[in-house]
Amino acid sequence: MTMDVEEVKRRAGPREFSPADDLPEEYRTAATRMLEFHANSEIMGAYLERPFIRQSPSLERKLAFSAKVQDEIGHGQLLYRAAESLGIKTREEMLSDLANGDGKFLNCFHYPMTEWEETPMIAFFVDGAAMRRQATLKQSSWEPYAHAMDKVCFEEGFHVKHGESILAELMNGSRKEQRLTQAAFEEWWPRILQFFGPTDDQSTHHDFAADVGLKTMTNDELRTAFLNSYLPKAETYGLEIPDEPRIRQNDDGTWDVVEDDLDWEEFFSIAKNEYEPGLGQINARKEAQAAVEWVREVLDDREAMAAGGHTGQAAD
């Protein structure tokens, strides 16, 4: 018998629910929404970083970038699987929604990234912010999600180190490198602050997700934890924090970001996949995927032929 929402709320705790449980649709829908968003973000993050495999200025950086992009596709694969196990949407549906511009993903991955000095803004700050959030998701009530986070967080640790190493190198490089990196930081900083979304009283999905244990920390708590750790790091590397958006630390260690200093119109147009540059990235990826549609058709045909006896060979 399907569990009712009240029972889910009562039982909600770390790794409490698995595909063996008959969970109500509200829970499965909310968990799917989170996982799909997370998986899409991995794919679009990889999309943004792939040009830097080629543009890496050393052989070992190139290897590290290729491995990072590969890891992110692997995380996407893992998260789509965890999402599929909720029985709401198949991976094909989620990937096709992402291609069509219906799939949602992190605000930062809607912005184009073209220069090397921008790479630590994603690979250090955004990934660092993501690490904060992902670490708390190890306590998610949906066991497959929490389990996926074990692997993701482990690998993400290397990515953040890699990003930090690029940042350190740039900020210890020539004055030109330092100047370009500071400019990239100023451009990306407001977007990074928006990573955690608007303050909690404006967030719509949080209450239910928190009540059923899918989320364990609020946006504000996560933002505070991130700032406490990354503001000092930015300063250590010689980055100057821009005067705006204004941010202020309270006596209790929490931070207030003056929300009016951030562009929420842009943020919400991004959230609807309507921001032009982001839309360009969505469509460019869609075209690349359409170009290899013929291969997927060959695989599907084989699978259809193999069906009814034995399963088709894995499509790797």
Binding site: G74, R285, V295, L299, A315
Partner: peptide
């Protein structure tokens, strides 16, 4: 990378 036919490939 990020352009192959499937996530696995």
């Amino acid at each position: 990378q990020v352009r192959a036919p499937t996530l696995e490939s």
